[in-house]
Computed example of a mutant assay.
Amino acid sequence: MKLAFIGIGNVGFAIADNLQKKGHEIIVANNDPTSETVKKALAQNPNFSVNTIQEAVNQAELIFLATPFNANEEILKDLKFGGKILIDCTNPVGAGISHGLKSEVSGSEKVQEYAPDAKVVKAFTIYGFENFIDSSYPSYNVKPLMMIAGNDAEAKSIVTIMSTDMGFETLDTGNLDQALHLEHMTLLWVKMVRRDGHHPNFVWAKLER
Rank of each mutant, 00 (worst) to 15 (best):
M1C: 09
M1Y: 07
M1P: 10
K2L: 11
K2S: 10
L3V: 13
A4C: 12
I6F: 04
V11L: 15
F13V: 04
F13I: 04
A14C: 11
I15F: 02
A16G: 15
N18I: 05
L19T: 05
K22W: 09
G23S: 07
H24C: 10
H24V: 07
H24Y: 10
E25M: 10
I26P: 00
P33S: 13
T34N: 15
T34C: 08
S35D: 08
V38L: 05
K40G: 10
K40M: 13
A43M: 09
N47W: 08
N47Y: 10
F48V: 04
V50D: 02
T52F: 07
I53G: 02
A60W: 01
E61W: 12
L62M: 15
T67F: 01
N70P: 06
N70M: 13
E73K: 15
E74S: 14
E74Y: 10
D78C: 08
K84R: 12
K84T: 06
K84L: 06
I87L: 05
I87A: 02
D88S: 08
P92V: 06
G94P: 02
A95P: 12
A95W: 03
I97M: 14
L101V: 05
E109W: 01
V111C: 06
Y114V: 07
D117W: 09
A123C: 08
F124V: 03
F124W: 04
E130K: 11
N131P: 05
I133C: 11
D134S: 09
Y137P: 03
Y137L: 06
P138Q: 08
V142S: 10
M147W: 00
N151E: 11
E154Y: 11
S157C: 09
I158N: 06
V159H: 02
V159C: 05
M162N: 07
T164W: 03
G167C: 05
G167F: 03
L171T: 04
T173D: 06
N175P: 10
L176Q: 00
L176G: 01
D177T: 14
H184K: 11
M185K: 05
T186A: 03
L188R: 04
K191Y: 04
R194V: 11
H199G: 13
P200D: 09
N201E: 14
F202I: 00
W204L: 14
E208M: 11
